[in-house]
Design a protein around this nucleic acid. Structure first.
Lengths: 198, 198
DNA sequence: CGGGTTTGGGACCAAAAAGTCAATAACTCA
DNA sequence: TGAGTTATTGACTTTTTGGTCCCAAACCCG
């Protein structure tokens, strides 16, 4: 090693997450990233290679932080009732909206964006979605109602919950009122796990 | 009127729909649009104003064709069972995926894209989403299971179905296998309307 | 047929895009 | 201390972006 890096690379990625999250892949211009990250052009290229590679790092970071947080919530053993874990996850989503955050979810935005057709990016996005679905499945396993279901039915329900999650976050981004989102979330969750037979 | 337009403007919009659908708003460059529409630069600007206005026309067209088609299916009086109408809509989505079409849904892609933060675009997207939700609500009204529900519950369920729809189409775009999508779709629909009590 | 008017085509433009590079600065190690 | 190595910087290049404009062509109406 010779001259040490002057910026913290993890911190720079965290800042890049914000920029891509807010503006999307195409919408995030180099100057936006440079401003947001507080580094110069050359430094970015030396440290990350190019824009796409930075984006991949950003998606991985989102996986490690945001997706991991959701997974943790859904598999939290301190809450024995899986149905409650699921309800809690959706509640936090609504809370974020109520606080005025309409950025949506980077994973969801990335999945819907045209960049997801790129093989590398698509792979990372798919992996995140799969992790979500597996976590939903784990929560279902720990729910009164679903744990007796055949495995296929559980998996189907888990994937359906992922779809609801993604859809809800996109409706949130599209400006749907928080109250309606909350009602929809309760319908999505409650229907399969709370309603009927108490 | 003097010299008549040489291209069909409706046809040109239809072609522009394909380009924006495939590449997204930012990703659709002028040359892409020009090629796809088969007209020259000057003609496009004369006929549509600028890129954003063309995009608005494209979204409206999508509303009139694709969204209207879904609404029609969901409110089709020739199928008395609303639950079946909903199931049929989701079936057609899966069919499209099975045919290899992974473009997703323009409305959904537009909602997730950063362009939706633009007031004009956001308005059109919201309107489409609302139309979908209303159509789902109409179908629920015509379903055995939901028609007895309180109005609020019906509306919540309708919004939840819109979320499932959007989420499913984005999972499809992200490359989720058709079989899993189908299972998830059946879970999303069947759960509330088919399962339990026949 | 000819003036008025609108379209078609594409050369042209300024701005912005991503990416490169060479000079300078800051460090390690001998 | 000085040689070697790596990071920082911002000017630079190339390509592409969305958008303008002018001229020729095609039409209507009188």
């Amino acid at each position: 090693m010779a001259r040490p890096r002057e910026f913290d690379i993890d911190d720079a990625i965290a800042k890049a997450v914000e920029v891509f999250w807010l503006r999307g892949y195409d919408g995030a211009a180099l100057p936006d990233l440079l401003d947001g990250m507080g580094i110069a052009r050359g430094s970015l290229y030396k440290a990350f290679g190019d824009k796409k590679q930075l984006y991949l790092r950003v998606l991985q970071r989102y996986d490690e932080v945001a997706v991991a947080g959701a997974v943790e919530l859904l598999t939290d053993p301190s809450e024995p009732d899986g149905a409650k874990r699921i309800a809690r996850l959706f509640d936090t989503v609504i809370d974020v909206v109520r606080e005025g955050d309409r950025k949506g979810c980077l994973m969801c935005n990335a999945a819907a964006g045209p960049a997801s057709e790129d093989a590398d990016i698509g792979r990372v996005v798919s992996r995140m979605l799969t992790r979500m679905t597996q976590a939903f499945a784990a929560a279902l396993q720990a729910s009164q109602r679903a744990q007796g279901w055949p495995l296929e039915a559980q998996e189907a329900e888990a994937e359906s919950l992922t779809a609801s999650y993604v859809g809800l976050r996109i409706l949130a981004k599209a400006g749907e009122p928080a109250d309606r989102l909350q009602a929809a979330a309760e319908a999505a969750v409650g229907k399969s796990l709370r309603s009927e037979k108490v």
